[in-house]
C-alpha cells in the first residue's frame, strides 16, 4: 500500500458513494447511464469472486464488499425504486460492443488460463471502457448535473492515481503487470476530455454543458 494507491481507492469509494447519495437525495437517476452502472456491476462481480478463494487483507475484503454492495444497490435504485426517472432514451450505447471485445481479448491476452484469471482479466478490460455509455449519454444530452460531474471526476481520478501507484510499485517492489497498466491507461485517456471540461467549467462554478 502506498499513498497513490490509497488515494485512488478513496477516490473510487467517494465516486461510488457520491452517486448513491445523488440518486437518493434527488430521488432521481436522471442523467446517469444504467448501462455504465450495469457494466461496473459485471466488473466487480467478475473480479471480486476471489473473495471466496483468496484473502489479502481486511481492508481489501471490506472494500470489495462495499463496491459490490454499492453497485448492486445502485442498480436496484435505477432499475426498480426510481425506475420512472431513468432516462433510457438517452442511454442508447450498445454495450455488447464493449462486452464481447473485452471477453475475446481476455482469452487472448491473459497471464494464465484458469477460469478465475480469465474472469479477472475480463473485468480489467471491461472496466477500462465501462464509462463509455455514461460519456456518450453526457454528449447526447449535452450537459451533466454538477454532482454527476463530481462523480465522474472522482471515478476518473481513481485510475489515474493507480497509474502513479504502478510507477511507484515498479521502482520500489519491481511489481509490473502490463495488463492492468495498459487497460488503466486506456481508461484514464477516456476521461481526458471530461477532465478538461471539469477543470475549465465545473471548478469555476459553472454547470457542465457542451458547446
Amino acid at each position: 500500500m502506498n499513498i497513490f494507491r490509497l488515494c485512488g481507492d478513496l477516490s473510487h469509494l467517494l465516486a461510488i458513494l457520491l452517486l448513491l447519495f445523488k440518486i437518493w437525495k434527488t430521488r432521481s437517476c436522471a442523467g446517469i447511464s444504467g448501462k455504465t452502472q450495469l457494466l461496473f456491476t459485471i466488473v466487480y462481480t467478475a473480479r471480486y469472486l476471489d473473495l471466496f478463494t483468496s484473502f489479502v487483507s481486511v481492508y481489501n475484503s471490506v472494500m470489495k464488499i462495499v463496491f459490490l454492495t454499492a453497485s448492486y444497490g445502485t442498480l436496484y435504485l435505477m432499475f426498480y425504486k426510481f425506475k420512472p426517472t431513468y432516462d433510457h432514451n438517452h442511454d442508447s450505447f450498445r454495450i455488447l460492443y464493449l462486452i464481447v471485445p473485452a471477453l475475446v481479448l481476455s482469452f487472448i491476452i491473459v497471464h494464465v488460463y484458469t477460469v478465475m484469471e480469465i474472469l479477472w482479466t475480463f473485468s480489467i478490460y471491461l472496466e477500462a471502457v465501462a464509462i463509455m455509455p455514461q460519456l456518450f449519454m453526457v454528449s447526447r444530452t449535452g450537459e451533466a448535473e454538477t454532482i454527476t460531474s463530481h462523480y465522474l471526476f472522482a471515478l476518473g481520478s481513481y485510475r489515474a492515481l493507480y497509474i502513479l501507484n504502478w510507477i511507484y510499485r515498479y521502482y520500489t517492489e519491481d511489481f509490473l503487470d502490463w495488463i492492468t497498466i495498459m487497460a488503466g491507461i486506456v481508461q484514464t485517456i477516456l476521461y481526458c476530455d471530461f477532465f478538461y471540461l471539469y477543470i475549465t467549467k465545473v471548478l469555476k462554478g459553472k454547470r457542465l454543458s457542451l458547446p
Binding site: 481489501n60 463496491f67 479477472w120 511489481f175 503487470d177
Partner: peptide, 10 residues
C-alpha cells in the same frame, strides 16, 4: 513480483 499472486489491488 508475480502479478498473478499479487491481486492485492482493487
Amino acid at each position: 513480483g508475480n502479478p498473478k499472486e499479487g491481486k492485492d489491488e482493487l
